[in-house]
């Protein structure tokens, strides 16, 4: 009993010591922590509106409850299936192709020997990530405009094909959106992977070269296995956003063309349209509420699975 008390006292002292020692670091983290609380946690109170018929006159707490009516509307329309299908499938496509492309480019970058060339490539591939989605929308339009677009005027028509009305045909857009997203995001992702790769212990590679390993063998036997934990962590984080979508990508890039809705409606664009057209806060929040809950579940499930298969790579 005495020992336990002493042990606890000792632990407390150590903690106090630690807090004192790391106080400046905690202080550094404080603004971020406060931001997180204000921005990510406080608004959660508003989620109750998903179960209410919001009245501007009565405010959040006094608006009348309407059970799950906001949800039944959501699932009563054909858009529920479309928006969940689109959101999930696009995210899976981004995750799958995005990871392959980013890892591939990161390994290529690692093989570039000239420092100047390496820096130039890094800057160039990062540029699309920094361009506003509205501008990307116009860039895409410059390619796909049915009358003056580059694809119709400079590619299809010179080859003898008829021009395509890109903004009225939904069937092309799953490909267009995936391509645009990959182009936009691969630079940033590959730099994250590249940063991991350059941190690997060089002695592995030196030993492999001594043993006569080819570059391909070095990639498959050293780089990829060492990169696996980073890929897993980034994948779990991406899975957490599985039910979220980049609003600009699905709204600005297809220019909100009605005929493309089947291919471009995601949870976010649906919520926006509902709120903008009807100012219906309850129904918009019902979709947002589902989005958050499902995203949370996916993260928990994925992390649990990773923890079982490879405990060291689990996020928590």
């Amino acid at each position: 009993m005495e020992n336990k008390k002493l042990l606890k006292e000792k632990q407390r002292k150590q903690t106090r010591k630690k807090i004192k020692k790391y106080a400046p670091l905690y202080l550094c983290a404080l603004p971020g922590f406060i931001y997180l609380i204000i921005n990510n946690y406080l608004p959660m109170g508003g989620l109750i509106l998903a179960f209410k018929k919001y009245s501007f006159a009565k405010g959040i707490l006094n608006s009348p409850w309407n059970g799950i009516q906001n949800f039944t509307y959501l699932f009563g329309s054909k858009w529920a299936g479309i928006m969940f299908r689109n959101t999930i499938l696009y995210n899976l496509a981004f995750l799958f192709f995005g990871t392959i492309l980013a890892v591939f480019v990161a390994i290529l970058l690692n093989e570039v020997r000239s420092m100047r060339a390496k820096k130039t490539y890094q800057t160039l591939i990062l540029l699309p990530h920094l361009v506003s989605t509205v501008l990307i929308g116009y860039l895409v339009y410059a390619f796909l405009s049915s009358t003056n677009g580059f694809v119709n005027k400079s590619m299809l028509e010179p080859l003898g094909f008829a021009g395509i009305e890109w903004y009225t045909e939904a069937k092309y857009w799953p490909f267009i959106i995936v391509i645009v997203q990959l182009w936009r995001s691969f630079g940033f992702q590959s730099i994250v992977y590249f940063a991991t790769i350059i941190g690997f212990d060089k002695t592995y590679y030196e030993a492999a070269v001594v043993d006569g390993a080819t570059t391909w063998q070095q990639i498959t036997k050293i780089t990829l296995p060492l990169l696996k934990p980073t890929v897993i962590i980034l994948t779990i984080m991406a899975l957490g956003r599985m039910f979220a979508s980049d609003f600009g990508l699905f709204y600005q890039v297809p220019q909100n063309s009605g005929l493309l809705y089947e291919a471009t409606t995601t949870i976010d664009t649906f919520v926006y349209r509902t709120l903008m057209q009807d100012h219906d806060v309850g129904r918009s929040l019902a979709a947002g509420f589902l989005q958050s809950i499902l995203g949370f579940c996916v993260v928990m499930i994925t992390n649990a699975m990773v923890r079982k298969v490879e405990p060291d790579s689990a996020l928590f």
Partner: peptide, 28 residues
């Protein structure tokens, strides 16, 4: 702490909403 702060947020939103409601009721 996070939950408490969230609740404070809810409370304050609630107060505002309550105030809004009161104001509206007063207005009405």
């Amino acid at each position: 702490a996070v939950i408490a702060l969230s609740c404070c947020g809810c409370g304050s939103t609630g107060d505002n909403a309550g105030a809004a409601s009161d104001g509206t009721q007063a207005a009405a």
